[in-house]
Amino acid sequence: MVQQDKTADIHAVIRRGKRWDYLFAAIGLICLAFGLLTVLVLVGKMGLEGLDRLSLDFFTSYPSRRAANAGILSAWVGSVLVMLVTAFAAVPLGVGAGVYLEEYAKKNWVTDIIEINITNLAAVPSIVYGLLALGIFVYQFGFGGSILSAGLTLALLILPIVIVATREAIRAIPGAMREGSMALGATKWQTVRYHILPYSMPGILTGIIIGLARAIGETAPIITIGALTFIAFLPPLPLVEGAGLFDWVMSPFTVMPIQMFNWTSRPEEAFQINAGAAGFVLVVMTLGMNALAIWLRYRLRKNIKW
């Protein structure tokens, strides 16, 4: 009899406990659905709006005064080229700094201050980077409102992301790998080159792509350094018609978000449709980059186990 009472008590306790389980699961699901739905509706509405304009012509036409002829050629080419410069600048700097901080820097107060500042840099509003770049790259270095200026500005912007991703990826490597390498007489650099970099590559690549995905949507700093809002020519192809290998980096440019912003500020209804289409393309580009990051991480991690 006593045993039965005990069992009944336990059942009651479990029932009461589980009530909260169900309640929380329901609340969580609602939160998730709310967030997801909002995004889906926004992207869907934009996509639907711009659907009429999404044709090959849209990608191969320059902007135009007539909405029906206007396209995003100069914008997407500009975005791709700016990302190229950003990646070339941010990756070596960010990965190098991350590796140095994790593997070489002595753990003292100077390193602590640098660490805190890197975290803070990630929180600086992007417009501030724009102002900084206007002073330094555009005027001081004389790069002007060029692809180079924009790429370097965005590189600064995502540098903290790349550094932090590099450090986290390195920290996830078990100390046993480092010890195993050093115990065989390897130097620090040999350990970094043969173990630390290859094993942290999936995490670093993910960080780089997430950073680039953020940079590709940035508008404020690019406007600040003086990107054009209307441009009907492409940067010179390298080594074509007398152009040098790197002449394109000094070319004026526009990027996707600016093109979009330009169209949304027009009074004509037809341009709103263009803006929707451009926005949809931009979102697809960003999602595509994130998908690439996930795929790369999955592929590379398959060969790394400890």
């Binding site: 078990p174 115990a183 790394i304 400890w306």
Partner: peptide, 10 residues
Amino acid sequence: MVFQKPNPFP
């Protein structure tokens, strides 16, 4: 040196 837990490199 040989360690406590086998630590082959990946």
